[in-house]
Write a protein that binds this DNA or RNA. Structure first.
Lengths: 147, 147
DNA sequence: TTCATCTTAATGCAGTTGCATGAAAAGGAG
DNA sequence: CTCCTTTTCATGCAACTGCATTAAGATGAA
């Protein structure tokens, strides 16, 4: 007798697994960073965006768009980063409402210090489990979700 | 002259995109659920696990494992669900420390009421952007990350 | 110019999460 | 049994997030 083939996983299963997997792996990476004495990943992400930007400077609204964060979360995250001395807030020269945020040398140093730990964490909790080609596959499929 | 091929995206790029994409899509789905007047997805997930369980009943520690949540988050999530009447907490018959959590009929009703909204949200914010085979591909690759 | 509208950023408050700890029962070695 | 370790669940407190609102400057139509 013929074996019944299992039904193909529907999109909803892929959705559920996407949420579970990315959440779990993120938690593990954050745990490793913290164990190494570093601040949360969100801090790293802001510093990285700034380090790549012209003059190491960005407007908060730009950070908001690049990191896909809510406006008030950006505002407070920048507060914390400024309080810790990793960025500095300047009055925006071209927009009276605006703020300009610049990476400080301390921020740049933190970025460089965190990188090995971050890289090792991603390797241990993510890359290690992938098979050849998986990274490209993921990158390509997920790219359709964030245009 | 030969065109230089772009470097293949490294695992770290796949990691970054995984976090961005899953976070962004999750936020959009949650926004739709809320717009329809429903509680957060976490509530749905607990109710769903209970509905699938023997006697519609689970121990908190089981929910913790299935949902990959921290223990204190489960404890408080169950508090809220019990407060809203969607589950009831019973003393575990076989374990004096333990609690047993059972889905109430109100909880079952909420589950059924949320499903169409949830399904539509996932369709609109996730499935819609996928191409044929993507769901299976994602499911398979992500499966390696949560053994 | 003038005024209504949009954009940028901050903040008070309530709800949620993370961390550390504690209480109580189960499990297990001797 | 006795004692030590482990498991299960709750909670005080601090930090963070979401929501709603506010303030202030930019933008653009008339």
């Amino acid at each position: 007798m013929r074996q019944t083939t299992p039904p193909p996983p529907a999109a909803i299963d892929a959705w559920a697994r996407l949420q579970r997997a990315s959440g779990a792996v993120l938690a593990r990476v954050e745990t490793r960073l913290k164990a190494d004495g570093f601040p949360p990943l969100g801090w790293y992400d802001v510093l990285l965006e700034l380090s790549r930007a012209e003059d190491k400077t960005l407007r908060p609204v730009e950070i908001e768009k690049r990191m896909l964060l809510a406006q008030y979360n950006v505002s407070r995250l920048l507060d914390r980063l400024a309080g810790a001395g990793y960025i500095e807030k300047l009055k925006s020269p071209e927009d009276g409402r605006g703020v300009s945020v610049r990476l400080t040398s301390e921020g740049d140093a933190l970025l460089k210090a965190m990188w090995p730990s971050y890289q090792a964490a991603v390797e241990a909790e993510f890359t290690k489990y992938l098979e050849p080609g998986d990274a490209e596959t993921l990158w390509s499929v997920l790219g359709r979700l964030v245009p």
